[in-house]
Structures are given as C-alpha cells and as structure tokens.
C-alpha cells in the first residue's frame, strides 16, 4: 500500500470521505452568508457584528474554518503530488501549506472570539 507522510488521512478513502464532508460544511456556510447578504441588502456594522456575536454563528464559523483547514490540506496535497515531481520541493511546499492552514484556523478563531 502506498502511504505518504504529508497526506491528511491514513488512506485515499479516508481523504476522499473527509474532503466531501468538509466540502458540504463549507458549501453550507457559503449559502448561509449568501442568505444573510440577500436578506440584508444594506447591512450596516451593528447588524453585521450582531450576527457574529451569536454563539451559533461563532460555532458554525469555527466548523467552517476547520473544514477549510482539512479541505485545503487534502486538495493542495493532491494537486502538488500530481505536478511536483521533485521530492524536496513537493514536501517543502506541502509542509508550508499544512502549517499555513493551521495558522489560518487559529487566526480565524482569534477573530471570532474578539467579537
């Protein structure tokens, strides 16, 4: 069995399932934001902040950020594994992407909990 240290999951099937679960969560979040913009065409600061002040929106946002972390890891891993044949370049870029995605997740949590 082919394994790769920088892949997200333990197997291709594992990645496949996580990629789809995270995709559905991110899509739901995008539709939620779209709904907010459609329902409030002239959204002002107070209303915008009030939306993000609710615990429900914070939890949904963190769930979306975590899904983004997983989805980006799997997606960029797949693309770089296909196109970058030099092992050091590929593993280097994959490592930067994994660490970067994790930083985005922590940054996002900090943004949400400062509201």
């Amino acid at each position: 069995m082919v394994t790769n240290a920088t892949a997200f999951g333990r197997s291709g099937l594992h990645d496949w399932v996580w990629q789809r679960i995270s995709a559905v969560i991110i899509a739901a979040y995008v539709f939620c934001l779209l709904g907010i913009f459609v329902l409030h065409p002239h959204l002002d600061f107070a209303a915008w902040r009030a939306i993000y002040a609710t615990l429900g929106m914070k939890l949904f946002s963190v769930l979306c950020l975590f899904s983004l972390f997983v989805h980006a890891w799997i997606g960029i891993w797949t693309v770089t594994t296909d196109y970058l044949k030099n092992v050091s370049v590929r593993v280097g870029i994959q490592s930067v992407v994994i660490v970067g995605s994790l930083l985005y997740l922590v940054w996002g949590i900090d943004i949400l909990w400062s509201v």
Binding site: F45, V79, V97
Partner: peptide
C-alpha cells in the same frame, strides 16, 4: 484545481476582511 489553489491563496485576504469589518464602525466603513 486552479480555482481551488487560488481560493487557498485568498484565505488571508478574506480573513483580513472579516477581521477588519468586525473591529469597529470606522473599519467596517
């Protein structure tokens, strides 16, 4: 694939917009 890579690169921009828009009335405007 290309749109996925572009979106990954755009994450910091989107997080910055979210952060700034939530900081205060002035930043939102």
């Amino acid at each position: 694939r290309a749109s996925g890579v572009l979106l990954f690169l755009a994450i910091p921009l989107l997080l910055w917009v979210l952060q700034t828009s939530l900081q205060g009335e002035e930043q939102f405007l």
